[in-house]
Write a protein that binds this DNA or RNA. Sequence first.
DNA 1: ACCTGAACACCGTTCAAGT
DNA 2: ACCTGAACACCGTTCAAGT
Lengths: 189, 189
Amino acid sequence: MATGTGQRRPRADARRNVARLVAAADEAFGRSGTDAPLEQVARAAGVAIGTLYGHFPHRRALIAAVLRERHDALFAVGEELLADRPPAEALAAWVRAVAGHAATYRGLAEVIAASLGDEASELHADCARLASFTHRIAARARRAGALRRGATDDDLVALMNAAAWVRVHHSPHQADRLIDATLASLRPT
Amino acid sequence: MATGTGQRRPRADARRNVARLVAAADEAFGRSGTDAPLEQVARAAGVAIGTLYGHFPHRRALIAAVLRERHDALFAVGEELLADRPPAEALAAWVRAVAGHAATYRGLAEVIAASLGDEASELHADCARLASFTHRIAARARRAGALRRGATDDDLVALMNAAAWVRVHHSPHQADRLIDATLASLRPT
DNA sequence: ACCTGAACACCGTTCAAGT
DNA sequence: ACCTGAACACCGTTCAAGT
């Protein structure tokens, strides 16, 4: 007799293949960026290319899967900053955390920027959560007088992505300096 | 009898093909970014793919050729800013001009960032000139007390490229705001 | 239910053969 | 001196055939 639940547990080999594909993708994205050849990912995972497409119909679906754990960790950091840190410190730490995250793979900042406004993207839900955290942390900083009135949430999101890009294409040091300089001028005078 | 100069005038058909390739590349890069398929460029120019490679052995050589006139115009702006504008205004205008330039094609900011430190790049000479202008304009702003002592040339170059990236992947508006905010905090307090 | 791999399209790059 | 386009390698994506 069937379990009756709509959500069936996948077959064991399928679960194993998905896990191997995600691990191989993480490795390939880390080495070659989010544009890494999917054929190489499948080969490294020891499965046929059709298996990859069977589980991940688009490249972004694979990227979303690879980011699952990283996003869990990132949002945990967000919760902790909201709960335990002073508003100004929390805001600065959040911007740095997201910028660091978006620089995990070359090309990731582009994917995130594109997914922010694309509801069809498998990353859209994560991006919306990211925007929501940014909004809450920024609002708290505003209430505490740690963020100037003219500074918008979009300013912060653009800064986080821009800093991630600088981290990848210039240097981590320059990225930190861009964040410091911009945040300094987003504080009240 | 030969002219005796080392630099011969190219054959007429070669000159025409180069001009067509550059025009087709400008169009393709504008539409699809600097990663646009070279095969399509050759097709649009009405030449065989081998002709493209004969004139431009690397993609960057073609990009450099396409940017020739744009860079001439950009450096003319730089000279004019140095000659005719007050130091603070010249610096802000220069950052905006370069950021706008580096956003001409999707992917161009990446190419510029990579070419800044790569002497093998056909774009390296242009990037060096770009860095030199930035240095002269920034030094002038420093002498006039319009740029804080801790602010480096590299900070400005990273900002220009980051703003170009934001212009392409977020919006021109956000790019302008990033420039305004960062420049504000690079001024003396 | 899931996996395989051939098949097709497309593009980067080289090079022997032409003019 | 320059042009052509076939040739090869590589990758994205689909799908008929298997288990």
